[in-house]
């Protein structure tokens, strides 16, 4: 795997995959996509980076501990459900906020934050497993 071609191309692939994963995550509310599949794509990008430039580089590129990223996702998803406490409705009821930005309307909603939470959970958990399996001792879980 450790060829010059792969190492040269890998950053490009990784960047494209990461941008695409965010796109897939955000379009997921009304179209095919969503946090889970977006997170999987992002985690695959990390895996590609791990294959091309080694586990340590991939680990550094994440900046945060992958398990902590997953935990932050759980926190975000749970908090997005809790927000509906303030509208007097049931747990996980969606709240929508339409932001008028010039010519476009940006719909912000709690399901979107839930989806971003799922994205982070999948990205963190699968990166942790992937990086853990890439070492010889299986440490990291």
């Amino acid at each position: 795997m450790n060829t010059v071609i792969f190492r040269t191309i890998a950053p490009l692939i990784v960047g494209t995959m990461l941008v695409f994963s965010v796109y897939i995550c955000l379009r997921g509310h009304n179209e095919p996509g969503g946090g889970f599949i977006g997170g999987l794509i992002a985690a695959s990008a990390i895996a590609v980076l791990g294959m091309s430039s080694g586990r340590d580089a991939a680990r550094r590129a994440l900046r945060f501990d992958p398990i902590a990223i997953a935990a932050a996702g759980v926190l975000l998803a749970a908090s997005s459900g809790l927000l509906s406490l303030f509208t007097g409705s049931a747990f996980m009821t969606s709240i929508w906020l339409y932001l008028e930005l010039g010519e476009t309307t940006v719909p912000l909603s709690t399901p979107m934050f839930f989806d971003i939470g799922v994205y982070l959970v999948v990205l963190g958990a699968i990166s942790a497993i992937g990086l853990g399996l890439e070492t010889d001792d299986g440490e990291g879980l």
Partner: peptide
């Protein structure tokens, strides 16, 4: 919309609290 009293939240609060606590504890581990 079914009327949901805020008091009914007491059913989900214990496990939501535990879940959020688990996430925070994992970040601060």
């Amino acid at each position: 919309t079914s009327a949901v009293a805020t008091a009914d939240w007491i059913v989900v609060l214990p496990l939501v609290l535990a879940l959020i606590g688990a996430a925070l504890a994992l970040m601060l581990r």
